[in-house]
């Protein structure tokens, strides 16, 4: 039954133009960054390595598919939540807005089943978006650039050998999926609270923006609040590009996010089960 419901949700999802906005935006941004890096990447790296060039001769090229993919990830990670929220924020409120809920719930489907199917669909879509980003940045990047060692700046200049890079990307994207599930879960929660897709998307973005600003402040009072904000953990994918990887931190961050994903789902379920369906 659940399988059929999810399949049905997917067919509905991919019939809407809204669903393709995320994929289109990612495609466009990735292509623009690839083209920009292809034209100007070397200048950027020269700037970065200026001080080191007094002491070292550089052998080999750091402008390669991995370095560029990392830059894409860094630039795009702020924007992916918007794309995720557009679809997840529409999952329940969209039905309410279109007035299809009453019709839908006349079918022999429990509210629990319906919300679960929609939640799973939203999360699969979110995962697809992140995987699309991965395939595009690494796959399309491979057309423009060779593979090679990657340079990353996290506290220090880390240069990773090319055999040490791919697993970091896979792990970072896996973490990225979990962190975007949190955003998707939040958008889904707002979607359950509202009957307007726009308001649930905007509410999600408002929460993320406010929390992100607080997460990035290093003032005393904010330091106390930070651990309780999920935005503090969203960019934890960067932990995989530190050397050595702080696994303890990765696991605790992932656990906190999984807690959020579950909590958002349960909250949505509780709200939706008690909700008067008037449209």
């Amino acid at each position: 039954m659940m399988h059929r419901l999810i399949k049905l949700e997917f067919s509905k999802l991919f019939r809407r133009g809204l669903t393709y906005i995320g994929f289109g935006a990612i495609l466009l941004i990735v292509l623009i960054i690839h083209a920009g890096m292809y034209a100007e990447g070397r200048k950027l790296l020269d700037l970065l390595m200026k001080n080191l060039s007094d002491v070292f001769v550089f052998q080999g090229d750091l402008i390669n598919v991995y370095t560029v993919s990392y830059i894409i990830l860094n630039s795009l990670w702020i924007h992916i939540p918007i794309l995720v929220a557009i679809v997840s924020g529409d999952m329940l409120s969209g039905e309410a807005g279109r007035g299809t809920f009453r019709l839908l719930l006349t079918r022999p489907v429990s509210r629990l089943g319906l919300v679960t199917a929609k939640y799973i669909t939203a999360q699969i879509y979110t995962a697809m978006l992140v995987i699309f980003l991965m395939l595009l940045s690494l796959g399309v990047g491979r057309i423009f650039y060779p593979t090679g060692d990657m340079i990353v700046l996290i506290n220090t200049i880390n240069i990773f050998g090319q055999t040490d890079v791919l697993w970091r990307f896979l792990a970072a994207f896996a973490y990225g999926i979990i962190s975007m599930w949190v955003v998707s879960g939040l958008a889904f929660l707002f979607s359950g609270l509202s009957s307007s897709s726009l308001s649930s998307v905007l509410s999600t973005m408002a929460v993320i923006i406010v929390f992100t600003i607080i997460s990035n402040f290093s003032l005393g009072i904010f330091e106390v609040i930070k651990p309780f904000l999920f935005t503090t953990y969203l960019n934890g994918w960067m932990l995989f590009f530190d050397d050595p990887v702080n696994w303890e931190k990765v696991i605790s961050y992932a656990a906190i996010m999984i807690f959020h994903i579950t909590a958002f789902f349960i909250a949505t379920l509780v709200i939706f089960r008690k909700k008067d369906i008037t449209t």
Partner: peptide, 10 residues
């Protein structure tokens, strides 16, 4: 060498 290397100038 394969990949990237820093070679001291002096």
């Amino acid at each position: 060498a394969p990949g990237f290397a820093l070679i001291p100038k002096r």
